[in-house]
């Protein structure tokens, strides 16, 4: 019931979102026809092209037309690339997804051991060192981190060739190898935040009565941390990771630009610049759906993790 309600609310949010972005295009100067014809545009040609692209209709009509198509799975044709939007997205989506999953994986791989160790040895040299590293990583602007990675790992150490992104469809293994580096740029700040969050959640749990009970049973601190506290801390951490996942799925515009990854973020920026609103709409729809799905997943996980919530739902 709650899930269904939540789902409906989310669908509403997605629709609102797509409508808002439609409106946004009304506000921004310039349109697809203008971009297409550029400096050679004559008023007549503009009018004609706008007619062909359906830009002369009122915004509501256009939105309704788009929505109707979208509901039937037809997202129209990109005015810039002259190919069906779905085809264009299917070229970019694997890259973004691979990047997202890779960076998520990195976040998890980095955050969990560090978070647990920092919480276990709270106040130790190790903890303090990584707290500082964390804060520092969080304070570096993401594009700058990307540039640093390109320069250090790419140019100086020659671990990869910056800019020579391999597309997923070409060679998945090579693609992943390359994506590791942009994923690092995305994952480092998020991992730092996750470490911090996980640690503070664990420390909150530390003072709870059940931890005392468990220690009273004769369990070691480490064991209590892993078997008792982690499960409880995960309840709040999973929500946070949900946000991280949603952000990762949205594709990092800046990191994709710096590393030249052909992903949705870059496509979004380019399509906004081209006023290619069919593409923008489709991407926003994707973003919305990704957020919805992640939220639902978080909800499900939440229920798995917390029996108290589970009961309310039944």
């Amino acid at each position: 019931m709650t899930i269904l309600k939540k789902f409906l609310a989310m669908v509403g949010t997605v629709l609102l979102l797509s409508f808002l972005s439609f409106l946004a295009f009304q506000v921004i100067p310039g349109d697809a026809a203008q971009v297409q014809l550029g400096t050679n545009a004559t008023p007549e040609a503009l009018l004609e092209l706008r007619e062909e692209l359906g830009l002369n209709d009122p915004v509501l009509v256009r939105y309704a037309r788009w929505l109707k198509g979208a509901l039937q799975g037809d997202f129209g044709v990109s005015t810039r690339y002259r190919m069906p939007v779905s085809e264009l997205l299917s070229q970019m989506l694997p890259n973004t997804l691979a990047l997202a999953l890779l960076s998520l994986l990195l976040v998890l791989v980095l955050a969990f051991p560090l978070g647990l160790l920092c919480a276990r040895f709270e106040g130790s040299l190790f903890d303090r060192f990584f707290t500082w590293v964390n804060q520092t990583v969080m304070a570096v602007p993401s594009f700058f981190l990307g540039i640093l990675i390109s320069i250090f790992l790419g140019i100086v150490l020659r671990l990869f060739v910056p800019g020579r992104a391999v597309s997923w469809s070409e060679n998945p293994a090579e693609c992943l190898r390359y994506l590791f580096f942009p994923a690092l740029a995305i994952a480092l700040p998020k991992a730092a935040m996750s470490v911090r969050f996980l640690k503070s959640s664990l420390i909150t749990e530390k003072n709870k009565d059940y931890v005392r009970t468990a220690r009273g049973k004769g369990m070691s601190r480490t064991r209590v941390l892993l078997t008792q506290m982690l499960g409880n801390a995960m309840i709040s951490v999973v929500t946070f990771l949900g946000v991280v996942a949603a952000e990762a799925l949205a594709g990092s515009i800046v990191v994709e630009q710096v590393f030249g990854v052909n992903g949705l973020g870059r496509l979004l920026v380019a399509s906004i610049a081209n006023r290619d609103y069919n593409v923008v709409q489709a991407i926003i729809l994707y973003l919305g759906i990704a957020v919805v799905l992640v939220n639902l997943l978080v909800d499900v996980l939440y229920r798995r993790l917390d029996p108290r919530v589970r009961r309310q739902a039944s």
Partner: peptide, 19 residues
């Protein structure tokens, strides 16, 4: 013809000997 996002991005690729 490899499309770079900007001159700056292309510059990094140049440094890498990619172009």
């Amino acid at each position: 013809f490899q499309i770079s996002e900007s001159t700056d991005a292309a510059f990094v690729e140049l440094l890498a000997g990619n172009i």
